[in-house]
């Protein structure tokens, strides 16, 4: 039982990270129907910028409290990622808004390659380690271990989602976003500045990505210019699983994917009598994804959009 609880905790923490990154994908997709491939790289840049700031602060005075240093790093990383996402949208996506749908997908892949290589030039080819400055408190729940950092990750991602939900549902900007998502033309006619709304969408997604990036690197103790790719892929899968374009869906999809992966890796070997082991963890995750989509083609919480004729 304690093993099961532990696996559940493992999955929830991993899932919270997926969910945070998935929020960015889902917001952009909801409005532009664009898979923003470069979003994973924005997460990576967030982690790298924060690590640089942390490095400088620790270099200047090593006695600063760890939590404060990390928060300072985060406070620099968030605007940096926001500016980056604003630039990406303006340069690589906006000119293609009327182009065929796959064109911006290709530029997104191109931007993703560019960001990776720029990060390699700036931060080097090596894995950068995250200094162990955060408090390492540990708790036991039902025989399972959970650290302060893990709790913080889950709480932060819940808060981010709640904040985002409030923003979309309760503010003027949110209403403009929803209108734009439904129809850019009509929104424009109603006086919504569509370009600005889209920029805001990217910027808000990037801010969340920066938080996710810092948390990922703090949690796993490292950052690397290539780290965004797999993370982005998993997060995108999570967004699709939950129903892309839907904020609660991204959260649900992320958490589910994390738990599926953890339980899959943990139990698949025992379930199949050792025939399939934890090397089929991703197969398991993808199979669940495929099954869900086969029975609910728009994801778990996705709206059943009638095919437009």
């Amino acid at each position: 039982m304690d093993i099961f609880t532990q696996q559940l905790i493992n999955g929830l923490v991993l899932g919270s990270i997926y969910a945070l990154v998935a929020l960015g994908y889902t917001m952009v997709y909801g409005i532009l129907e664009l898979i923003n491939f470069a979003h994973g790289e924005v997460t990576m840049i967030g982690a790298m910028v924060a690590l640089s700031v942390i490095g400088v602060l620790l270099g200047a005075s090593p006695d600063l409290p760890g939590l404060m240093v990390v928060i300072a790093g985060l406070l620099v990383a968030i605007p940096a990622c926001m500016a980056l996402a604003f630039g990406i949208e303006k340069i690589a996506y906006r000119p293609l808004r009327k182009a065929p749908r796959l064109a911006p997908l290709i530029t997104a892949i191109g931007v993703s390659i560019i960001l990776q290589n720029v990060a390699m030039l700036v931060w080097g080819r090596q894995y950068v380690s995250f200094p162990a400055i955060l408090p390492r408190g540990q708790h036991e729940i039902l025989g399972a271990h959970i650290t302060d950092l893990q709790i913080a990750i889950v709480v932060l991602s819940l808060l981010s989602m709640a904040g985002l939900w409030l923003l979309v549902e309760k503010t003027r900007l949110g209403r403009a976003m929803r209108a734009t998502a439904q129809s850019k033309e009509v929104a424009e006619l109603m006086g919504v500045n569509v370009d600005r709304v889209i920029s805001y969408t990217f910027i808000i997604g990037a801010a969340i990505a920066a938080i996710a990036g810092v948390m990922v690197s703090a949690y796993y103790g490292l950052a690397h210019y290539y780290m965004g790719f797999m993370l982005g892929l998993k997060a995108f899968s999570a967004a699709v699983l939950g129903g892309i374009g839907n904020i609660a869906g991204a959260m649900l999809g992320g958490l589910l994917l994390g738990v599926i992966e953890a339980l899959g890796a943990g139990y698949i070997g025992d379930l199949t009598g050792g025939f399939l082991g934890s090397h089929y963890q991703d197969v398991f995750a993808f199979l669940v994804l495929i099954l869900v989509l086969v029975f609910r083609p728009s994801g778990l919480l996705g709206e059943r959009v009638a095919s437009r004729a």
């Binding site: 093993i3 696996q7 493992n10 796993y220 780290m227």
Partner: peptide
């Protein structure tokens, strides 16, 4: 126990938990 991961992974908690058992 014989467990597996991949060369891009950073999260090993699931397999390590299983190993712990």
């Amino acid at each position: 126990a014989r467990e597996f991961t991949n060369d891009k992974a950073t999260d090993f908690t699931a397999i390590l938990t299983s190993i712990k058992g």
